[in-house]
């Protein structure tokens, strides 16, 4: 194959005509680094010398010839992030992880690196973890970011993941719809309920996407708080039939339109839930 030959005008977005960088990107996406065997194969397939491919692989910062950790933490040290305290953030990450920038933790969980600019200077200091952005990061947020990363940031991708789907629910007592079309969460109508915890009493909007745990509420609900959930129409408590399988706190019960029961844990932060559609327990 003569790589001086450009893709001709008549060919549309043809996968086979991707440049070398795209090929390497896809290998890296699969293995998290560029294994030697894969590079040899690329050399054979494309007819380019291995040294050429090695040259490209080492030139670009995104490629790594060494295995990397499960999560990639990139701390921005660009000019704008630097003047806003980027180095302190990098240092805090080094301290928390116990490795220097450019290294991987011994448990292969995290790779820490510093980057020069992530192109979001107005929101600095910036940190990205597995491609997700954290903006205006302070040293206090570092621990939380690492914890969040361990729990799995990219576990559920709303909109593309098949495990996430919208559902509509009713109150089990008055059968009134709990859907709120005015208040969107995740871009879909939310499930609006009333919650009370401590001396607080206010509304809470849950994401109607099964698999998403995003909520907005009138009052911030502290982590681990067990709240009481009420129907905003009949004010009856949405009491579940069982306790949470994960933490044992009471469950909240709602009727799925079209048949079925969904139960969610009443403890903030707990992801325990059950879905029972027409007798089939998922």
């Amino acid at each position: 194959m003569d790589h001086n030959d450009a893709p001709m005008a008549t060919e549309t977005q043809d996968e086979d005509h991707d440049g070398l960088i795209s090929i390497l990107e896809r290998i890296q996406a699969k293995y998290n680094y560029l294994p030697q065997e894969a590079l040899r194969e690329v050399s054979e397939e494309t007819g380019r010398s291995l040294v050429d491919i090695y040259g490209v692989a080492t030139f670009y910062r995104a490629f790594s010839l060494k295995p990397r950790g499960k999560h990639l933490v990139s701390v921005c040290l660009g000019t704008a992030c630097h003047v806003r305290g980027g180095p302190m953030i990098a240092e805090e990450f080094e301290r928390q992880l116990g490795v220097c920038a450019g290294e991987t933790t011994p448990d292969k969980e995290f790779t820490l690196e510093t980057v020069n600019c992530l192109g979001a200077c107005a929101l600095g200091p910036i940190v990205t973890v597995d491609g997700r952005y954290f903006t205006k990061v302070g040293t206090a947020a570092v621990k939380k970011i690492l914890k969040q990363a361990k729990e799995g940031l990219g576990k559920v991708e709303i909109g593309t993941d098949e495990r996430v789907f919208p559902m509509e629910v009713n109150c089990p007592r008055c059968n009134h719809s709990l859907m709120d079309t005015d208040h969107l969460v995740d871009g879909h109508p939310s499930i609006r309920v009333t919650v009370s915890f401590g001396k607080m009493h206010g509304w809470l909007c849950l994401s109607s996407l099964y698999g998403s745990y995003n909520v907005t509420s009138e009052y911030p609900i502290p982590e681990n708080t067990v709240a009481y959930f009420f129907c905003p129409h009949c004010h009856g408590e949405l009491l579940g039939a069982s306790d949470c399988p994960e933490c044992g706190e009471p469950m909240v019960r709602m009727i799925v339109r079209g048949g079925g029961v969904v139960q969610i844990c009443s403890r903030r932060g707990c992801k325990g839930h059950t879905l029972d559609v027409d007798g089939v327990n998922l």
């Binding site: 005008a9 060919e11 549309t12 440049g19 795209s22 390497l24 670009y60 490629f63 980057v115």
Partner: peptide, 14 residues
């Protein structure tokens, strides 16, 4: 008139 568009990504080089 005909034209096509392809997105090509870089790999981290200023």
């Amino acid at each position: 008139f005909s034209t096509h568009l392809t997105v090509h990504t870089g790999a981290g080089s200023y």
